[in-house]
Design a binder for these strands. Structure first.
Ligand SMILES: [Zn+2]
Ligand SMILES: [Zn+2]
Ligand SMILES: [Zn+2]
Ligand SMILES: [Zn+2]
Lengths: 140, 140
DNA sequence: AGCACATATGATACCCAGTATCAATAGACC
DNA sequence: GGTCTATTGATACTGGGTATCATATGTGCT
């Protein structure tokens, strides 16, 4: 999956630098959603000497390529989820942060109807589902 | 609509203070979504002497009462939309910021299906539609 | 392999949203 | 009006994110 990110960066025409490779590897090891600060801490712990700005820059790049998606948690903080670059949405565990993709988003009917009633031309949508993952449910 | 907010604050058991009344009036005059900074500027222009913290505090209160909803625009900034305290979603114009409510969110089917497949217990969802309002469409 | 050059990096300083603190103020209720 | 507590606003602070810019490093060419 780090490979996937590096391929995408290559395809996007940007350089495959050391910091980018290292960060991609760190992202690969992450479970669930993470913040820019989390990544920065990961890098710091391993003395990678990676700068704050570089982390944000890579996350933006990956986000443009759709390999990472920035979501807004219910508590207002921003987090990132590694994912596939196709249209889909996320199911996020409010307890442990685990995420799952919801690829068949059947809301085309909803958007169509909303467009018809409002006269708006709908160009994008965002759907996020929050709850408790199986583990956290059973762990109670 | 400022009345509505003040009533709700009253019902919530908090004091109906001068700053809150003034801010409610300012919110009433707003069109489309606005940021905390916008409100603060409104108040500043009129020499209302309202502090930064007070604005944030009121927005949080109103948000708890469901009279204002905080949304995350595609560009990553936070904005508020005055609205009714019932479950609904927003259609936001990417050009002028106008908003409309979408009260019939027909995504229960989607969430049900997602829950069944993933094993998650879904507790909340967020759906936001972005596009162009009728005015902005015709204005090209 | 070596060169040249543009891109990327990281240190630093900075900006902006939001929050903690706290003495002073002003609602609410009697 | 008087009391008592919630609220206010000034100030200082935090934390996410960005602009700057001299330095370092990929990449393409030879
Ligand atoms: Zn979980
Ligand atoms: Zn969708
Ligand atoms: Zn518009
Ligand atoms: Zn809904």
């Amino acid at each position: 999956m780090a490979e996937e990110m590096l391929d995408a960066l290559d395809r996007a025409g940007v350089r495959l630098t050391g910091p980018r490779r290292k960060l991609a590897a760190l992202i690969e090891r992450r479970e669930g959603h993470f913040t820019a600060a989390d990544l920065l801490k990961d890098a710091g712990r391993r003395r990678m000497g990676i700068g704050r700005a570089t982390v944000f820059r890579l996350l933006e790049l990956l986000s443009e390529q759709g390999l990472v998606e920035r979501i807004d948690l219910p508590d207002g903080t921003h987090a990132y989820i590694p994912c596939e670059p196709t249209h889909h949405h996320h199911l996020v565990c409010l307890n442990c942060g685990a995420t799952t993709d919801v690829d068949d988003c059947g809301i085309e009917a909803v958007t169509h109807e909303a467009a018809r009633r409002s006269g708006f031309k709908i160009e994008q949508h965002r759907l996020e589902l929050f709850g408790r993952c199986p583990d956290c449910r059973s762990a109670n």
